[in-house]
Design a protein around this nucleic acid. Structure first.
Lengths: 115, 115
DNA sequence: CTTGACCCTCACATTGCTGTCAGACTGTAG
DNA sequence: CTACAGTCTGACAGCAATGTGAGGGTCAAG
C-alpha cells in the first residue's frame, strides 16, 4: 500500500506518516523505486501511534513504549524504566481524563441551564 | 494579590498569567506602580482558564466562551455562534475522552497482563 | 512518448504555548 | 541609604507537531 492510500485509510496526513518514520516509529518497506510500501501491520501501528499521540503522549514516549503498546501479551519483561514510564503515563492520562470531564461539565452545565 | 502570589496559589507560571492578559482573558487591576493586582475573582478565572486550556481548548476559544464559562447561571442568551462553539467543544471533549480512555486501556492492558 | 497523478527528499514556515533574559522600576526591611 | 526581592515590558528562543513548496523521479493509461 502506498503512502497516499494509507493516509486516506487512516486520516493521517502524508506529512505525518513520513514524520513518524523520521522519528523512528514506523518504518515501512521500500520498493525499488524508493516508494514506501505499507502493509496491514504498519497500518495498525500507524493507528495506534495516532491514538496515543492524540491522547497527548509525545512521540518520544510512544517510541519508547512501542514494543509494549504493540504486543497483545507480554512476551518479555520490560525494563524498570519502561515500566515506570508506563505507569507514569497512565496516571497522566487519569489526570487528563479528570480534567476533560471537569471541563466538559463546565460547558454542558451552562448549556443545560439554558434549555 | 501580586502576580507571584497568584502564581504560587494556582501553579500557573508568571509568564502564563501575563500571557493570559496579553490574550485578553484575564485583566487584573493595576496599582499606581503598574503592578498587577489580582483578586479572588481573577483567581477563579485563572483556574478556569487553566483547566480548559489543559483540556485542550485553545485560548482563542476560551476567550470566546469565557462569559458562559464564568457565569453559574445563564443571565443572557448567547448568540448562536457561541452556542455552536459550546456544542462543538463538548463533542470534541467527548471524542478526546474516548481517545484517552482507549489509550489508557492499551497501557494498563499491558501492565495488567504482566502481573 | 507524453501526460497526469503519485511519490521522493529537503528545507523552511507556522502554530501555540512556554521559557528566559535584559534593563529598568518598586517596595520593604534594616 | 542600601540591599534584596518582586515586578514591569519587550524581545528572542525553543519545542513538538504540522503545513507547504521546490525540484525531481515513478508509473500506469492512452
Amino acid at each position: 500500500m502506498q503512502i497516499g492510500d494509507l493516509s486516506k485509510r487512516t486520516g493521517i496526513s502524508i506529512r505525518m506518516l513520513r514524520y513518524y518514520e523520521e522519528e523512528g516509529l514506523l518504518t515501512p518497506a521500500r520498493r525499488a523505486s524508493g516508494y514506501r510500501d505499507y502493509g496491514k501491520a504498519e497500518e495498525r501501528i500507524a493507528r495506534r501511534i495516532r491514538l496515543l499521540s492524540e491522547a497527548g503522549l509525545k512521540l518520544d514516549t510512544i517510541r519508547f513504549l512501542l514494543p509494549c503498546v504493540l504486543s497483545d501479551r507480554p512476551d518479555f519483561e520490560p525494563c524498570p524504566e519502561v515500566l515506570a514510564t508506563l505507569r507514569r503515563e497512565v496516571t497522566g492520562l487519569d489526570d487528563k481524563i479528570d480534567c476533560l470531564q471537569s471541563s466538559r461539565a463546565i460547558l454542558t452545565g451552562y448549556l443545560d441551564r439554558l434549555g
